[in-house]
Design a protein around this nucleic acid. Structure first.
Length: 274
DNA sequence: GCCCAGGTATAAA
DNA sequence: TTTATACATGGG
């Protein structure tokens, strides 16, 4: 990935692809919004950014080199070669090659572990517009305001609240799950930062100590919050897809990039069935 | 109004 | 161990 500073901000020339829509609207994150002009704005670690496509790349508007080095280079995972990953997955079988083509330019963002965990707890039995609404109210209600935007509230902050205090979120039955997660993360019973290195099976066991965290939320947390690209979130949809169009494909067979293959498969099967 | 949302806890078979 | 239901809320 090449990039350079300009009067517009930081410009990216992604030879391995960076499609804003496929990346921000694929269901991996909930704090990026498409604007009427096609650009996207989002908040990461308390910093707001607007990004938009140009003919030969992506512009991170008014982005300083300091913020780029400190946040965005890492967050957008710009040092990972997604072409190489796509190629590796495509070589596993022809169906996966087709699937990989169906959502070009998707990148797996390096979200913060706690934000991802909390967001995917909220996501259960829920739809994306409503998830985004709840996350937004969570940040505005309990995050810290800085430079006109709200950070995602820490586990420590949320751990001191009650379900009554979370009522304005309208998160429904998930409110007590959020609090249980906040308490267990804040007091160290569930150590998220250790999970960058821990074997996946141990991570799952730890995460599922939290009430409201099952196999799916645990796997999403590992893939999207800890960038464990081998994590493979399997749900009913995915089981059906694997049975129908990808017979013979298993999580084990997908190897170290199973999570990315899963994204390809999910979107491919959605597109052909709708 | 009705169906459903990239689930999970809980109570039965 | 596997299978059914309730769960809060609101988008389409």
């Amino acid at each position: 990935m090449e990039f350079r500073s300009s009067e517009r901000g930081i410009e990216l020339f992604a030879d391995d692809g960076f499609d804003l829509k496929n990346t921000f609207d694929c269901g991996q994150c909930f704090r990026w919004d498409e604007q009427p002009d096609g650009s996207y704005t989002g908040v990461v670690r308390g910093k707001r950014l607007r990004v938009y496509s140009v003919d030969n790349g992506i512009v991170l508007e008014n982005c300083s080199e300091e913020d780029f080095d400190g946040i965005w280079l890492d967050y957008f995972d710009l040092n990972t070669d997604y072409n190489a990953i796509k190629k590796e997955i495509s070589e596993l079988c022809p169906a996966l090659k087709d699937a990989a083509e169906s959502i070009s330019g998707i990148r797996i963002l390096r979200q913060e572990p706690w934000e991802a965990l909390c967001s995917f707890i909220i996501s259960q039995n829920n739809n994306i517009p409503r998830i985004k609404g709840i996350v937004s109210r969570l940040c505005e209600g309990f995050g810290e305001k800085k430079d006109g935007c709200y950070s995602f509230p820490s586990a420590e902050t949320l751990s001191r609240l009650s379900v009554e205090e979370l009522a304005p979120l309208r998160a429904g039955f998930r409110a007590r799950y959020i609090l249980d997660a906040a308490k267990k993360v804040a007091d160290g019973e569930v150590a998220l930062d250790a999970m960058y290195e821990l074997p996946l099976e141990e991570c799952r066991k730890e995460l599922m100590k939290i009430v409201g965290v099952g196999a799916k939320v645990a796997e999403c947390t590992l893939l999207y919050g800890l960038h464990r690209l081998e994590a493979f979130p399997v749900d009913v949809w995915m089981k059906k897809a694997l049975a129908d169009s990808f017979s013979g494909v298993t999580a084990e067979g997908l190897g170290r990039y199973a999570g990315i293959a899963q994204q390809y498969i999910f979107h491919y099967t959605r597109n052909i069935s709708e």
